[in-house]
Each structure stands twice: as C-alpha cells, then as structure tokens.
Design a protein around this nucleic acid. Structure first.
Lengths: 106, 106
DNA sequence: CATAGTACTATGCGTTGTATAGTATTATAC
DNA sequence: GTATAATACTATACAACGCATAGTACTATG
C-alpha cells in the first residue's frame, strides 16, 4: 500500500484500537496486525503526538520489574475519530469520482 | 477536510480528470471544483511531478498570444490510477475497522 | 548461552499539500 | 479610462507524517 495513502488514517486507527480497552505500544502493534501493518517507528511517535494533543492519557504499570506505558483514550480522542469518519466521506467522493472516470474510459 | 487524508488521492484525482480529454492547469482546477478543493499551489507541483515520472506528457498551444500548457495522460499514468483503486480497498479496511470499533463503543 | 520476544527511545529523511508571492495578459464593470 | 476580476503559470519555503535505522534493556525458551 502506498505510504501517502495511510496518512491521517493510522493515527485514528490507533485511537480506535483503544476504545475497547487501554493498551500499550507493543500490544497495540499486535492487535492492529490484521488491520494494517504498523511498525514501532510509526506507532511510538503517533502515541506521543496523540498524548501531546490530549487525545490520549498515559499511565505506567510495573511489569516484570519494568514500567509498561498504558494509554487510554480521552473525549478529545473520541472526537477526533468522529471527525475522521466524516472526513472519510469526502475522501470517498474523491475515490468515487476517480472510479467513475475510469469506467467512462473503458 | 483534514490535509493529511488527501495525500496520495489528489494526484490520482488529477490523473483521472485527464482520462476524458487533455486539459491545462486552470481548467483542471475548475473541473475538479465539485469533487475536491484544489488550489494552484497544489495543482501545479502535482502536474510537474506527474510529468517528471512519465505519468503525463505535455504540449503547448498558443492561446491569445500566450502558451497554454496541455497535459495528456500516459499508459503509466493509467496504471497509477489502477494501483490507487487497489490501494484504496486496503484503506477501506482501515476505515471499516475504525467504524466497527466505534459502533462497539456505543 | 544464544536467540527470540518484549518494550521503548532517539535521530533523520522524503513526500506532499499548501501558503505566499510574483509575473503577465485579457475581459468586465464602474 | 482605470480598477477589478479572471486567466495562466512559476518559484520558494514550510509542516506533518510515515518509516528506516539504531540503540537500550530485560525476560523467556531452546
């Protein structure tokens, strides 16, 4: 999948994965595996950005003598998901236009 | 519409608009108006990129004593559209996942 | 005891959408 | 008759984001 096309979607994908329950970096990558390939170098900056913009809150839990950083979604994070769902409708318009022009061309 | 979400789609949108007939910068902006808002500063770099990557060819036609630059789509450009249509299916998977998680949360 | 898995941080790059500004001609309106 | 809008394009510079790469460090498994 072309890199550019993922832009804006990965972030929201991560947010959505936290709706059900709080989670931490490594586990988020595992749980999103089926939906989209996301690497550490992509996820961790996303988590930091989302926390900085108050879409996520974090807290640490000790696990095997080390701290595991859990993230939980905020109301602002939920709002961001809703905005995405709306924006995606517009993107669908673009997609539909392209598909339509292709059909005309056949 | 969030800027990041447009990434990768605008380019293909421009390509698709040239399937029907050759066109030039100003007219492309007009014709895409209903589908997506695209400004000069977005379109012209796209046109140059697409030409540099051989997805478009260009030729100039005199109009009112000035040269008007027409673009026509190449086979490579058409291939790029097809790739986009496929990639978009993957993006839809991401979208569907997000929408599903939101429904669960209600 | 080496390898794989777990868990996270830091640095840096390329692509792309867009703002801003500049150039220059023609058509319309006051 | 001159100001404004429309036409048509070029050039520069920026910010955001996905991702590659590398490093740290601990635990479990064979």
């Amino acid at each position: 999948m072309e890199v550019q096309l993922k832009r804006g979607s990965l972030e929201v994908c991560v947010l959505a994965s936290l709706l059900k329950e709080d989670s931490y970096g490594y586990k988020i990558i595992q749980s999103l595996q089926e939906v989209v390939e996301i690497s550490e170098s992509t996820l961790y900056p996303i988590l930091r950005r989302l926390e900085a913009s108050n879409c996520l809150k974090s807290y640490s839990v000790e696990h095997n003598g080390r701290l595991r950083k859990f993230y939980s979604i905020t109301e602002k994070g939920k709002d961001k998901i809703k905005e995405y769902l709306q924006d995606f409708q517009e993107l669908m318009n673009i997609f539909n236009y392209i598909a339509k022009e292709v059909r005309k061309d056949d």
